[in-house]
């Protein structure tokens, strides 16, 4: 049985968003990708509030790819709110960012990130990263039961 996967990509830079979508497309990962362009939108999507008020909140993504530098609510703020809510507490979050500052890495893990990946400048490297992320988080990784659905 082929499972259809859902990824929430939180990314404010349209170039990065497009490149990420392209990378997942090229990696042949069978998944739908929802893009949120700021932290507030991401939270609205996850909790089915605001512009996503009509969405079925039971449908949750398999993994959230989260940029740190975001307008309105920043990445760490999103992570904090997710971990404070029972519905998203266990949802796998991969921080995907340009930064490799030690403080960013430490604070991400402290707030409960499951993984930290620096976006490579080299697109070829970025393709490799996207493929590996898809393989691992959508294939190998066993998600927490509540997020599981067909």
């Amino acid at each position: 049985m082929i499972r259809s996967h859902l990824i929430l990509l939180v990314e404010d830079n349209p170039d990065d968003a497009e490149l990420t979508l392209r990378a997942f497309k090229e990696s042949k990962t069978l998944s739908a990708i929802v893009v949120a362009t700021d932290g507030e939108q991401a939270l609205d999507y996850l909790f089915a509030t605001g512009s996503y008020a009509n969405r079925d909140p039971k449908i949750t993504p398999d993994v959230v790819l989260l940029d740190l530098k975001l307008p309105k609510v920043d990445g760490l703020g999103v992570l904090q709110r997710m971990r404070a809510n029972s519905r998203t507490r266990r949802l796998p979050v991969v921080v995907l960012t340009s930064s490799n500052e030690e403080t960013d890495i430490l604070r991400s893990y402290d707030l409960g990130a499951n993984s930290f990946v620096q976006k490579p400048v080299d697109f070829a490297q970025f393709l490799i990263a996207a493929r590996q992320l898809g393989l691992y988080w959508l294939g190998l990784n066993e998600p927490p039961p509540v997020t599981r659905r067909i």
């Binding site: 990065d16 740190l68 340009s98």
Partner: peptide, 15 residues
């Protein structure tokens, strides 16, 4: 570290 890399990724990626 954050902002200078992003445009480079675009340049390389779209090329």
């Amino acid at each position: 570290s954050h902002d200078l890399r992003a445009p480079l990724r675009s340049i390389d990626g779209f090329s």
